[in-house]
Amino acid sequence: MTIFDKTKEAAEKRGMSLQDVARKAGLGINSIYAWKKRDPSITRIKAVAKVLKVSSDELLGIENADNPKIIDIEDDHVLMTFEGKPIPPDDLEIIKRLLRGAKK
């Protein structure tokens, strides 16, 4: 999968178009489409990753055991499961409250 494909997939998971992502990242609205033909700069990758709430490594396809995937518990686009089953919304809210309390 190319960086363009990974970016497009991450945008779709968040219900965003590539033009929306580019705009929020401070890029030209069609600049991500250019990634089909040439690699973007690391600065552009970081800006897009921040908008999509993913790591630059994830967009680049770099897997690193020392760099765990960070998930924002407030991101409604993250599917949380336990033992392969979705967590009921009420239970998920309890888990979120417990995790928020652990941060303090």
Rank of each mutant, 00 (worst) to 15 (best):
M1N: 11
M1T: 10
I3A: 03
I3W: 03
I3T: 06
I3G: 03
F4N: 07
D5Y: 01
K6C: 00
T7N: 04
E9W: 00
E9M: 01
E9F: 00
A10I: 01
A11F: 00
A11R: 01
E12Q: 08
E12F: 00
E12P: 00
E12G: 00
K13E: 01
R14C: 04
R14T: 04
S17C: 05
S17R: 08
L18K: 05
D20P: 08
V21N: 05
A22R: 07
A22P: 07
A22C: 07
R23S: 12
K24R: 06
K24L: 10
K24A: 09
A25R: 01
G26W: 01
L27I: 04
L27Q: 01
G28E: 07
G28V: 12
G28T: 09
I29K: 12
I29S: 14
N30Q: 09
S31V: 10
I32C: 04
Y33A: 11
W35P: 01
W35D: 02
W35G: 08
W35E: 04
K37G: 15
R38T: 15
D39K: 13
P40S: 12
P40C: 13
I42T: 12
I42G: 09
T43C: 11
T43E: 15
R44S: 13
I45K: 05
A47V: 02
A47I: 02
V48I: 02
A49L: 06
A49Y: 04
V51W: 00
L52W: 00
K53L: 05
V54D: 07
V54N: 03
V54T: 07
S55I: 06
D57G: 12
D57P: 04
D57M: 10
L59R: 06
L60H: 07
L60F: 05
G61V: 08
G61R: 06
I62L: 09
E63V: 08
N64L: 13
A65E: 14
A65R: 11
D66G: 15
D66K: 15
N67V: 14
N67R: 14
P68V: 14
P68W: 07
K69T: 08
K69V: 13
I70A: 08
I70H: 01
I70K: 04
I71A: 09
I71F: 08
I73R: 02
I73Q: 06
E74T: 06
E74D: 10
D75V: 00
D76Y: 07
D76G: 06
D76P: 03
H77K: 03
H77R: 03
H77A: 09
V78I: 08
L79V: 12
L79F: 11
M80T: 14
M80Y: 15
T81S: 14
T81E: 15
E83C: 02
G84S: 07
P86L: 10
I87N: 10
P88W: 01
D91V: 10
L92E: 06
E93A: 14
E93L: 12
E93P: 06
E93M: 12
I94E: 15
K96T: 13
K96P: 13
K96E: 12
R97H: 09
L98Y: 15
L99S: 09
L99Q: 11
R100Q: 14
R100T: 13
G101K: 09
G101C: 11
A102E: 09
A102C: 13
K103T: 12
K103V: 15
K103Y: 08
K104M: 13
K104F: 12
